[in-house]
């Protein structure tokens, strides 16, 4: 069992080891939907929600697999559980909050193949977090993801109005920006020890 404090875990997963800018996880949505500020915010919200649910599921699943002594099934069952959780969550959100469902739109089903979600589940298992620690870790990861996405969307909205050379347009420009953002986030590495 890991005995890091909750605050350290939160700061660690959201700022110091930001999932997008330090671990390069969830880059596809990061490059894909960071064009506009509102969609970026919604995507971040959806990812955070799914991360929290997936994290709780992964914790239960690990206990179950250890009980039946089959750790090699970890990956297969995790991906199946995440895929079905996303499906269930989609139905639940549609039933209980149509407004939120409309806001999230296509992003909810797409999240299944987002590597950040699976990574949250894998990292919390390998680090041996407890249930509460896992949830805080997932929340931090989600907040960090949203932060990176929103910052990037803001930058790209400004850049869209500027003149850039033709060869740089598109993914390359976004990657350059991400590199600079990543440099900025390295400044956080002193926080929390």
């Amino acid at each position: 069992m890991n005995d890091e404090s909750l605050w350290t875990i939160f700061i660690g997963s959201s700022l110091i080891n930001n999932f997008v800018l330090a671990y390069f996880l969830g880059l596809c949505p990061f490059l894909g939907v960071s064009g506009r500020l509102t969609t970026a915010l919604r995507m971040g919200l959806a990812v955070t929600l799914v991360m929290l649910v997936a994290s709780a599921c992964a914790y239960g699943l690990r206990a179950l697999l250890e009980a039946v002594n089959a750790p090699y099934l970890n990956l297969i069952s995790l991906i199946a559980v995440i895929a079905s959780t996303v499906q269930l969550l989609e139905m639940a959100v549609r039933k209980f909050s149509p407004a939120l469902f409309r806001a999230l739109g296509i992003f909810l089903p797409l999240i299944t193949t987002n590597c950040a979600i699976l990574a949250v589940a894998l990292f919390q298992t390998s680090r041996g977090y407890g249930l509460l620690q896992s949830l805080v870790f997932a929340l931090g990861a989600g907040v960090g993801f949203t932060l990176a996405l929103v910052l990037m969307a803001g930058l790209r909205e400004r850049l869209a109005l500027n003149q850039t050379p033709d060869v740089v347009k598109g993914a390359a420009l976004t990657l350059l920006l991400a590199g600079i953002l990543s440099l900025c986030f390295m400044g956080f590495s002193g926080l929390g020890g």
């Binding site: 800018l21 330090a22 671990y23 390069f24 060869v167 740089v168 993914a171 390359a172 420009l173 990657l175 350059l176 991400a178 590199g179 600079i180 990543s182 440099l183 390295m186």
Partner: peptide, 18 residues
């Protein structure tokens, strides 16, 4: 470190595009 990854990949993308 992470920023280097972004920069080098951006560089290769630009080269390919060019």
């Amino acid at each position: 470190l992470p920023p280097g990854g972004f920069f080098v990949l951006a560089g290769w993308l630009i080269l390919f595009r060019f």
